[in-house]
Design a protein around this nucleic acid. Structure first.
Length: 470
DNA sequence: GAATTCCCCTG
DNA sequence: CAGGTGATATTG
């Protein structure tokens, strides 16, 4: 028997395909249909590791909601009730992924603290890590620390003692010891190859971050300038400054573009060196410094994008903070960039007052927005409610996956995709439903220019960006 | 490496 | 519904 409702357009699959997908536990069908077992009253995802039920005992549903409506309860192993893309949904893979991320961005945390953040025992974390990456977390962390130390020795003038602290060591000694043991060189030998001049004035730390040219600074500069939130960031012709939150701390940075050297000179103002690595990561992400412009350009050409329209060296302007990204997306629904940014500035100015009009301060916190009366904003009431619900959600579950935001009323696929494009590390987000993108594609089609978005994979974010004016 | 948890089948 | 089987994830 087949109980798939026609309400789900993806569900026009032949029954034989569904059956085969189930037997094979084919992950490509995960989320497209659900398997309900009549004998137990439990429903699962096609990938569920549980014992395979007999064909005569199963019903198929297009959605978890439908299965639950029919009286089935979600399986405790495969969690068909969780949102696709969430941590619970993706399981072990994301745990390792998050572990790697934490390990390489928070150098001062030990393995026990990381495991705790992941919600698993250190024992299991060790095993998973070893299993997937063939290296222990401890060793991975050490090499990461040394790599970062080497970078700082080369690309900053930070004293060695402070380099050690920035890498999660308690003192210079252990850094010297491990560096010598693993690279054959001591930190001061590495430092000697550094030709950078100038000290670190006060508590300011200067780091030089290079990129692969070409880099179209004018585009990313204009993009950020147009979306500037005045008390949080400052954009001028050659630099961008912003207060970011890293590891619970506020960090001010100023990234100055130095086109001749293909790099940015980045100055950080931070109270604790342990967040330096994370801060550098944020800047790299915002300015898209790791991208390979040549690979992207050739892939965009394949999609049918005319050479004349292709902006060489275009970068994806990133947003590191998830709450900020969500706010920008929600407020930006269905309105011009200008209108949206006006409201964001109003939000920031009303709820996050600065002591001194020249100071830069952090973006308003979720708690502040959740607790505020938002009637001062000029936007539809429904959108204000969404913004507030989103802020509440973020105070409760700041680490929930972005896909889970879909459960909030007023947050749909466009909003989630926009956030994914600007915040996630996946460069393959195509905003097919975006109004500007649609209009542009239509206009191009009228001029006999047909763009096949799929062939731009895995760089479809850049295709989207190229279709926007700014 | 054992114990636990969870699922599905059969009687 | 109870009892038994098999399989995987996770822990101590």
């Amino acid at each position: 028997m087949l109980l798939i409702a026609q309400t789900n357009p993806t569900m026009n699959l032949p029954i034989a395909t569904i059956q085969r997908a189930r037997i094979a536990r084919d992950p490509r069908f995960d989320g497209l249909f659900f398997v309900a077992v009549k004998t137990t009253g439990i429903f699962c995802r096609p990938i569920c590791r549980a014992r395979m039920p007999l064909e005569k005992n199963v019903d198929y549903y297009a959605s978890a909601i439908q299965a639950m409506d029919q009286g089935f309860r979600p399986c405790l192993m495969c969690r068909p009730d969780s949102a696709p893309g969430s941590f619970a949904w993706k399981g072990v893979e994301t745990t390792v992924e998050r572990g790697v991320k934490l390990l390489s961005s928070r150098l001062s945390l030990n393995i026990a603290e990381i495991s705790e953040k992941l919600g698993i025992s250190t024992r299991y974390f060790n095993r998973l890590f070893e299993q997937h990456l063939q290296i222990s977390p401890k060793r991975y962390q050490l090499l990461n620390r040394l790599l970062f130390a080497k970078q700082l020795l080369h690309e900053s003038t930070l004293p060695i003692e402070q380099v050690a602290h920035a890498c999660g060591f308690n003192a210079a000694k252990p850094l010297q010891h491990h560096m010598k043991a693993n690279t054959g060189l001591t930190p001061s030998q590495i430092r000697r190859a550094n030709s950078l001049k100038g000290g670190n004035e006060g508590s300011e730390i200067i780091v030089y971050l290079s990129y692969r040219p070409p880099y179209q600074w004018s585009h990313i500069q204009a993009f950020f300038k147009l979306r500037e939130i005045h008390s949080n960031e400052f954009v001028d012709d050659s630099s961008i400054s912003k207060v970011i939150k890293v590891g619970g701390q506020n960090v001010l940075f100023k990234a100055l573009h130095q086109a001749e050297q293909n790099r940015f000179e980045v100055r950080f103002l931070l109270s604790d060196l342990s967040v330096l690595k994370g801060s550098i990561g944020v800047v790299k992400k915002m300015l898209d410094l790791s991208c390979d412009p040549h690979a992207i350009a050739s892939s965009l050409k394949q999609s049918g994008m005319p050479e004349s329209m292709l902006r060489s060296g275009i970068r994806l302007p990133g947003i590191n903070d998830r709450f900020e990204a969500g706010c920008r997306a929600i407020v930006g629904q269905q309105v011009t960039v200008k209108a949206a940014i006006g409201q964001l500035n109003l939000l920031q100015n009303t709820l996050a007052k600065r002591a001194n009009p020249d100071d830069l301060i952090a973006f308003v916190s979720p708690a502040r927005v959740a607790g505020a009366d938002l009637s001062f904003l000029k936007m539809p009431n429904a959108r204000k409610a969404t913004l507030k619900a989103f802020a509440e959600f973020m105070t409760q579950r700041p680490n929930a996956s972005i896909a889970e935001w879909l459960t909030i009323k007023g947050i749909g696929t466009w909003t989630v995709n926009y956030v994914n494009m600007r915040h996630s590390d996946n460069p393959d987000v195509f905003l097919a439903t975006d109004l500007v993108v649609k209009n542009k594609l239509k206009k191009l089609a009228e001029q006999q220019v047909n763009i096949d978005a799929d062939t731009a994979a895995p760089w479809r974010s850049y295709l989207t960006l190229n279709l926007w004016d700014l």
